[in-house]
Design a binder for these strands. Structure first.
Lengths: 232, 232
DNA sequence: CGACTTCTTGAGGATATTCAAGAATAGTGG
DNA sequence: CCACTATTCTTGAATATCCTCAAGAAGTCG
């Protein structure tokens, strides 16, 4: 069983707030939920239950219904990420969360977090960092969407997945092409074409779900705006 | 002079924290800065000074340098908005802030805010709402950027400006076409074309800086994805 | 009033989408 | 374990959309 020092919650769970002999997992008395691939953590229009969720393992997609009926992916979230921050002051959820793989998820009552912030000196600072990091992530996503070229967006997406994997040379794509397309503001056809173009050049190697970037440097240049013909 | 109850800071400045006889403006001891149109509040790569800013009047744009050299607009901020949240745990600013019109801006030391959060019970909740609202705003922007059609994005932009104006029928466009383009991921030519197309149909009426939407219903349909030819 | 910038509008070319069909994969039940 | 079905992925050709380049109009500021 995991202990406090690798618990993602330890950002807010420092020093005196972590009772050593409390039995390992219960440092913030979170309950643990298991989700199978395809199951929902919550749906759009669900009533907000005032729980915050932290992903211990697995991948989740956060989505919204676009005005045109299509699905818009807000974010892909992996191990260590917080889910539910976007609905703190809402009564109804305006986003849904689905498991892309089997997941293990810890849930904390929002009220408990608030109490902790009011009680523990350094936690407010940690919360500020959380806010700042969240904003930075959304700004990065927006920058991706503003890139004019399709390959450019796909390249940036691959690099972001890789960076998220703690500097490993290997990352996963647990989501469908349609999901990637909805995330990048493209169509699944175009995503496919871009991936094929990178593979054909030998810059991208893909297995079932995992990929590596043998041509990392080239992919970075494409992400920076270097032109690349889709057929060739 | 404004008093506490219309001060944007009163979100975090409640009850006992607001000394009544403190002389009006100094409830959180913020200093006030005046900016002329075009002046910077801070620039990219500036050292973070650990102040948070709140816009009392005027409009500001928050921008970033894109990898391709072009300017990317992160957000347009109006009266009541907070500036600087995105740099709380950074040493260098990764975004710049410029006044689009003459501005009046209140600044609060970040440390004072943190102290307030640690001291005052209900302020943590208020901070949570701030976080939630900020995330929601970025998600809305992302949804705009994912819209495939250019008119659709422009229509959504106009509606968002209108909604931000507290339900008034009239809103302003203090930024240049190039700024709008950089915000929506388009070119200034295309923005111009889209605005002209809406004007030609009588759905949009524009003065120098202000606009109204006589065809509000139609514009909403365009924002929802209804097709619209740019020439016609 | 004149110089400057910003905005509008045009025509041509590049790029992503649409529509569609075949290939690969995943999931199910025998 | 294999066959069968359903879904997802890939790829092609044609169309629509947006961008580039450019010049004229309108607005801004001294």
């Amino acid at each position: 069983m995991r202990r406090c020092h690798d618990c993602p919650l330890n950002l807010l769970c420092q020093d005196d707030a972590a009772p050593a002999g409390d039995g390992g997992d219960a440092c913030l008395r979170q309950r643990c939920v298991h989700l199978r691939s395809g199951e929902h953590l919550f749906r759009v229009s669900d009533e907000v239950d005032h729980y915050l969720h932290i992903i211990r393992s697995g991948d989740i997609k956060l989505y919204q219904h676009g005005r045109d009926g299509g699905q818009h992916i807000i974010e892909f979230l992996g191990a260590g990420a917080w889910v539910g921050l976007e609905s703190l002051d809402e009564h109804q959820r305006h986003a849904g969360a689905v498991a892309l793989t089997d997941c293990e998820i810890a849930s904390v009552p929002y009220a408990m977090l608030i109490a902790l912030l009011d009680r523990q000196p350094r936690s407010a600072e940690a919360f500020g960092q959380l806010l700042s990091a969240t904003i930075a992530r959304h700004q990065q996503h927006a920058a991706m969407l503003r890139s004019t070229s399709a390959v450019q967006r796909v390249a940036q997406f691959l690099l972001a997945r890789l960076a998220q994997a703690h500097g490993m040379a290997r990352a996963t794509l647990p989501m469908s092409r349609q999901d990637i397309a909805d995330y990048l503001g493209l169509t699944s056809s175009t995503v496919s074409r871009c991936l094929s173009a990178l593979r054909r050049r030998g810059w991208l190697a893909m297995g079932q779900r995992a990929f590596t970037l043998p041509g990392l440097h080239n992919v970075e240049q494409v992400a920076a705006g270097a032109p690349l013909a889709l057929d060739g």
